[in-house]
Each structure stands twice: as structure tokens, then as C-alpha cells.
Simulated scan of single mutants.
Amino acid sequence: MRVNGVVESLDIEPWVSLLDALRDHLGLTGPKKGCDQGACGACTVLADGVRINACLALAMQYADKEITTIEGIAKDSADTHPMQQAFVRHDGLQCGYCTSGQICSAVAMLAEHAAGMPSSVTPRQGGTHLTDDEIRERMSGNLCRCGAYNGILDAIKDVAAQEAP
């Protein structure tokens, strides 16, 4: 599989989760094992740009996909992604445990919205302004036990405003 732009060859059992493959076999500890049931979002990574819960995915299912973790989210490894910068600016983190999943999810969420993908808040495609309710609904799969939601919301709005045409 290709992880953060690097082709990786793994010799693992077919039942190994993508999360365990990333953490235990590749040493990528950004994605966290929170609930291990797909309920918290701490393990969120991108598979071909689409956010997934790595704890629910078998690594074998993603052999032909591009997997991006928080370690590879920035285009240049010597730099940080604008979303990472916004999270710091707006105090969108406290303990940091959920932060990598939150950032990966937020990056993909903005791409989904830009592509006109509907949500429960905006059931029709395209042309909708990204409201606070829209962001909250689209990010509802990522939990923060510290309650940094206001900072997370502000960070996402900041990046959305920068990306707006």
C-alpha cells in the first residue's frame, strides 16, 4: 500500500486493521486507538482523500489506495498543513489525543463540502455556505473529550475562509 506518498510492503495477517498496520507495523502513531469501534474518530485517516475510521478497516482492503495520516497531511514534510496551523492559532486542541483524527477529518470534510456532497444539514448538493451547524454535523464523527469544539470550529472556519474563491 502507499502511505503518505511512500510505497510500503507489509506481511500481515488478513484480519489486521488498518489502524494496527499503521501504528504497529509502520510506526505511524498519529492515528490513535480510542474506542476501537468507530465511534470516536481518533483513528481517522484519508484513503484516496476520503476520511475513514482506520480501526474499522482491514489493512488488506486498502492495498491499492493512497493512505494519508496526520504525518503526511502537509504537502511538504518540512511544513505544516494550514489546518494544523489553524488548530494551533484557535486552540483547537487540549490534550491532543483526538487532534490528528480531527485534522484529517476536517481536511476531508472541507473537500467534501467543496465537491457539493450533501449532509443532513444541507440535503441538496452545491452552493451552500458552510455554517457552524454544517461544520458541526459534518464533524460529528470526531469526538473531543476535552471539549475543544469551539476552537476546532473556529479553526475549520478560518481554513474554509482562506480556501473560499
Rank of each mutant, 00 (worst) to 15 (best):
D11T: 14
D11R: 14
I12G: 05
V16M: 12
V16A: 08
L19W: 04
D20R: 14
A21I: 02
A21P: 05
L22H: 08
L22D: 04
L22E: 03
L26H: 02
G27M: 10
G27E: 13
P31R: 04
P31C: 04
K32A: 09
K32W: 04
K32G: 01
K32S: 04
K33Q: 13
K33P: 06
G34P: 02
A39M: 14
A39P: 02
C40T: 11
G41R: 05
G41N: 07
A42S: 13
A42W: 09
T44S: 07
V45S: 01
A47I: 09
A47N: 06
A47C: 08
D48S: 01
G49M: 07
V50L: 11
V50Y: 05
R51I: 01
R51H: 10
I52A: 02
I52E: 05
N53K: 12
A54K: 05
A57D: 00
A59I: 03
A59P: 07
Q61F: 08
Y62W: 14
D64P: 06
D64H: 08
K65R: 13
I67F: 04
I67D: 05
I67H: 07
I70D: 01
E71C: 00
E71N: 01
E71F: 00
A74T: 01
A78P: 04
A78W: 08
D79N: 14
D79G: 11
T80E: 12
H81W: 02
H81S: 07
P82S: 03
P82M: 03
P82I: 04
P82V: 02
P82C: 03
M83N: 01
M83P: 00
Q84H: 02
Q84A: 05
Q84I: 06
Q84Y: 02
Q85C: 09
A86F: 01
F87D: 04
H90W: 09
H90I: 10
D91M: 12
Q94K: 07
C95R: 09
G96V: 03
Y97K: 10
C98T: 08
T99V: 06
S100H: 06
G101M: 01
Q102A: 10
C104E: 00
S105G: 08
V107T: 01
A108Q: 00
M109N: 01
M109F: 05
L110I: 07
A111C: 04
E112D: 15
E112H: 11
E112M: 09
G116T: 11
M117Q: 15
V121S: 05
V121M: 12
V121Y: 10
T122N: 15
P123M: 15
R124C: 13
Q125P: 14
Q125R: 15
G126L: 13
G127F: 10
T128K: 15
H129F: 13
T131E: 11
D132V: 14
D132F: 10
D133F: 04
I135A: 08
R136V: 11
R136W: 06
E137R: 11
R138I: 10
